[in-house]
């Protein structure tokens, strides 16, 4: 891929200004094995209705669900500064891929390197992400081998920047290192993520449930955990609980 091609593939990063210096070498941010298509599921049918006599033919539709693909440098604006600073500190192999989408940048980090990465993001004077705004989970059951994602939103008050750091773990081995040693505020966030998704944060000082009762079975925000609810009768008609109503996929 020539340099000109990369220019053409400028990610649609919203309002990011593109004043990246010429010849900046950040190509090793995206390793060669990075997936370009991020399939997290397959959608079937036009309306998500199954088991009804479909005569339209739309019921046979299948469409992959594609998340925004990995971006190639230059990412535009200060994104490149952060990416370069991160690679300089921890090496390119710690980062699986970088996604620039809708004016936000996401660093997908190998889970075993997560603590090292956030430590560098916090302490490097050029980066200075002092505040961990948020840490939570997302469950992608169809993303084989990376079902459970941990998503951190970091804020640099010094530079007024926000980034997203994401690490993933397979459902069979739901372990991610705890970042409490770097960001003490992650304590309750990680407890909530354990509570809701069953992700075990190794090294957390006291990983216990926080919102659900201590003896609660299961992790409610996993996709295979039912919402629950009972049918409601109103003026003679019965309305099924929300997760049993017709859904438009």
């Amino acid at each position: 891929m020539s340099a000109d091609d990369k220019e053409d593939q400028q990610p649609s990063a919203g309002h990011v200004d593109e004043d990246t210096p010429e010849g900046s070498d950040v190509t090793d941010v995206v390793p060669s094995d990075a997936q370009t298509l991020e399939v997290v599921g397959v959608r079937e049918g036009a309306f998500g209705v199954a088991g009804t006599g479909d005569t339209s033919g739309f019921g046979g539709l299948t469409k992959p669900i594609l998340m925004p693909p990995a971006s190639v440098p230059p990412f535009g604006g200060w994104f490149d500064e952060v990416a370069e600073g991160l690679v300089r500190g921890v090496g390119g192999e710690a980062i699986e891929k970088v996604v620039v989408d809708r004016g936000e940048i996401t660093f997908h980090v190998r889970r075993e390197r997560l603590v090292e990465v956030v430590q560098h993001l916090r302490d490097d004077p050029a980066l200075r992400f002092e505040l961990c705004s948020s840490l939570s989970g997302v469950h992608y059951p169809a993303d084989a081998g990376r079902e459970l994602h941990v998503v951190l939103h970091l804020l640099s008050m010094t530079h007024r920047r926000r980034i997203r750091v994401e690490a993933s773990a397979p459902e069979g081995d739901p372990h991610v290192p705890s970042v409490v040693s770097v960001y003490p505020t992650a304590d309750w966030h990680e407890r909530e993520t354990w509570d809701m998704f069953g992700i075990v944060f190794d090294g957390h000082p006291a990983l216990t449930r926080i919102l659900m009762p201590d003896d609660w079975p299961g992790h409610p925000q996993r996709k295979d955990y039912p919402l629950g609810g009972i049918p409601v009768e109103y003026k003679g008609a019965t309305i099924p609980p929300p997760d049993e109503r017709r859904r438009y996929s």
């Binding site: 997290v40 998340m67 925004p68 705004s133 948020s134 998503v151």
Partner: peptide, 19 residues
């Protein structure tokens, strides 16, 4: 469209963000 976004506002109590 598929993707993710984080938007934060200054609530009376501090930063409330939605991912």
């Amino acid at each position: 469209p598929p993707g993710q976004a984080y938007f934060a506002v200054e609530s009376p109590r501090g930063e409330i963000g939605c991912h």
